[in-house]
Amino acid sequence: MIHPSSDRPQTGTVFTFSELVGTPFQGMVNALCWKREPDGDFKEIADKLQLKENITEVSVEDLCALQLSESGCTARETILNDIRLLTDFGASPSLNLLRCYERDEELGFISTDVYSYHVDRSTVGTDTFLCTYHGDASDILPNDQALQKILVPEIREKLRKLHNGPEAEFETFLKEYYFDLHYEPMPDAQPVNLGTGHLWRLAVDHPEQQVLPCIHRAPVENEGEYRLLLIC
Rank of each mutant, 00 (worst) to 15 (best):
R84E: 14
A91P: 08
V29D: 01
R36F: 05
G135K: 00
E44I: 00
E57G: 05
L107C: 06
H118L: 11
Q67G: 11
E37D: 15
E105Q: 15
P153D: 12
M28F: 14
Q148A: 08
E37V: 01
C73Y: 09
W34P: 03
D41I: 12
L80R: 02
D39H: 05
A75C: 06
L80C: 07
G27K: 09
L49N: 02
R156L: 09
D120G: 02
I150P: 02
C100W: 14
R84H: 13
Q148L: 11
L85C: 12
K161L: 13
I45N: 02
K149M: 02
E77K: 06
D113F: 02
D127L: 00
F89E: 10
C64Y: 10
A46E: 03
P142I: 00
C64N: 13
G135M: 07
E157S: 15
C131Q: 03
M28I: 09
N30Y: 09
C64W: 12
L80P: 01
T128Y: 04
D127S: 13
D139A: 05
I110L: 04
I79N: 02
T126V: 08
K35R: 14
E106Q: 14
D62L: 07
H118T: 03
K43Q: 15
L151F: 10
I155Y: 01
E44T: 09
L51N: 07
Q50K: 10
T132V: 04
Q67F: 09
A146N: 00
C100P: 06
L95V: 03
R121K: 14
E106A: 08
F129E: 03
I83T: 08
D88Y: 09
N30S: 05
I155H: 05
T126W: 05
R36D: 00
L107A: 04
K35L: 10
C64T: 10
T123V: 13
Y101T: 02
S138C: 02
Q145W: 07
G135F: 01
E102T: 07
L66Q: 05
S116A: 12
I155A: 11
F129M: 03
N96C: 08
D39K: 15
L85T: 09
T74A: 15
S69L: 11
L68Y: 02
L151R: 14
Q67S: 07
D47S: 12
V152D: 06
K35N: 13
T56Q: 06
D113V: 05
T74S: 15
L159H: 06
I110Y: 08
N96I: 04
I45P: 14
Q67M: 07
T132M: 03
Y133A: 02
R36L: 08
C64H: 10
K35Q: 14
L49K: 12
F129C: 03
L141N: 04
S94V: 03
L86E: 01
H134Q: 11
T112E: 04
P142L: 03
E77Y: 09
S122R: 02
L159N: 04
R76M: 11
E154S: 15
K48M: 03
D39N: 14
K48C: 10
D127K: 01
K158S: 02
G72V: 11
E77P: 06
D88T: 01
M28R: 01
L130S: 12
E102G: 01
G108D: 09
C131A: 13
T74E: 11
D113E: 10
H134T: 08
